[in-house]
């Protein structure tokens, strides 16, 4: 099968299961028994992602969801069990070396930099490994250090630098070969406000102006909301949702309603109404009213029915209704809603 034409990165039905084997000790009545356990972890189950040039894709998900694994599969560090990854129309498994020239990767939390060397020497070393050399390498290294704000540290050994500075250097290393596709695994962890701002701006600039495709994983919803055009939420290896940012927020905003009421109703009967997914009471700003927040089903045909039923139920209970509002959602609440099941 060929990839979707027009996208730089395309994941096509990716599956990955890891097996871990270890001995497990169980205390019995009289003896300690040793049991051999083999565990499966589904790090990716049928993942389909397409990233067009000039777009930023955000991959979100709780710890251990499979984000890093996905990034590694695109960069050829992990081989998918099933499915194929395409970068610029080239199959990663078939011609890995071609792909590696085209991507820049920052892996989360690893010590990619060589500590006894300075940032400049690190960039030259990795530049050579990536087939960049000579004056091009020199010029690009200077530019990168300038933009990321490490130029005054360029002659200090990496081991003397702070964690955030190392992270910045790792980002520079990923960009040294001027890759078309950039994969950033938690790029802004440990960075100060200015730097993470600068990096966000740079990512946006690079993507828009040079038509690069970027995949970012992050736990920072603000970063994701500001940066990404498309959001994919992954949970236990499954892509729960994959939608353009504004659409995603809209869909969820449509289904959350705030009822301003004079006293808190019992929640259980409300939850029993078909179409009501979740119900809770928040204290309103005005002390004499309460805020009843209901999450309704996203299916429109059931939603109006549910709304009628809720209003009728409130009236039957003798509760006075002051106002009804559709709540504006943000990415964080959407994320929580989609992934709470596993927490």
């Amino acid at each position: 099968m060929t990839p979707d034409s027009g996208s730089l990165v395309s994941l096509d039905g990716i599956h990955k299961t890891f097996f871990t084997r270890h001995f497990f000790y169980r205390e019995n009545d009289d003896a300690r028994r040793r049991i051999y356990v083999k565990k499966e972890v589904h790090a990716a189950q049928d993942i389909n992602i397409d990233i067009a040039p000039g777009k930023i894709f955000g991959l979100l998900g709780p710890n251990g969801a499979g984000k890093t694994t996905t990034v590694k599969m695109i960069s050829g560090l992990v081989k998918p069990d099933k499915g194929a990854v395409w970068v610029e129309g080239i199959n990663v498994e078939k011609s890995r070396k071609e792909i590696l020239k085209r991507i820049g990767v920052v892996l989360e939390g690893t010590r990619t930099t060589i500590w006894p060397l300075t940032p400049m020497e690190n960039l030259r070393y990795y530049g050579n490994l990536k087939n960049v050399r000579g004056s091009v390498l020199k010029k690009r290294a200077h530019e990168l250090l300038d933009f990321i704000g490490l130029s005054e540290k360029k002659d200090v050994q990496v081991r003397h630098m702070s964690r955030g500075q190392k992270q910045k250097l790792a980002i520079c290393i990923a960009l040294i070969a001027d890759p078309k596709v950039i994969l950033l695994d938690e790029p802004t962890t440990g960075l100060d406000v200015q730097s993470s701002r600068a990096i966000k701006d740079k990512i946006i600039e690079m993507t828009r102006e040079h038509g690069k495709a970027v995949l970012v994983t992050t736990h920072d919803m603000h970063v994701a909301q500001e940066l990404c055009d498309t959001i994919g939420i992954i949970d236990q290896g499954k892509l729960v949702t994959c939608k353009p940012m504004n659409e995603l927020i809209e869909v969820f905003s449509e289904s959350v309603f705030e009822f301003r009421v004079d006293e808190a109703p019992l929640l259980d009967p409300l939850r029993a109404i078909p179409g009501v997914v979740q119900a809770e009471v928040e204290n309103g700003n005005q002390s004499n009213t309460k805020l009843l927040v209901l999450h309704l089903t996203p299916k429109e045909e059931f939603r109006s029915e549910a709304l009628y039923n809720v209003v009728t139920h409130l009236r039957d209970c003798g509760i006075q209704l002051h106002s009804i509002n559709q709540r504006q959602q943000n990415l964080e609440s959407v994320f929580l809603q989609l992934t709470t099941s596993s927490i």
């Binding site: 560090l77 590696l100 990619t112 060589i114 990536k130």
Partner: peptide, 11 residues
């Protein structure tokens, strides 16, 4: 983590 970097070298 240097190993992963080496693996990502096109050479």
């Amino acid at each position: 983590g240097v190993l992963e970097q080496l693996c990502m070298s096109p050479h």
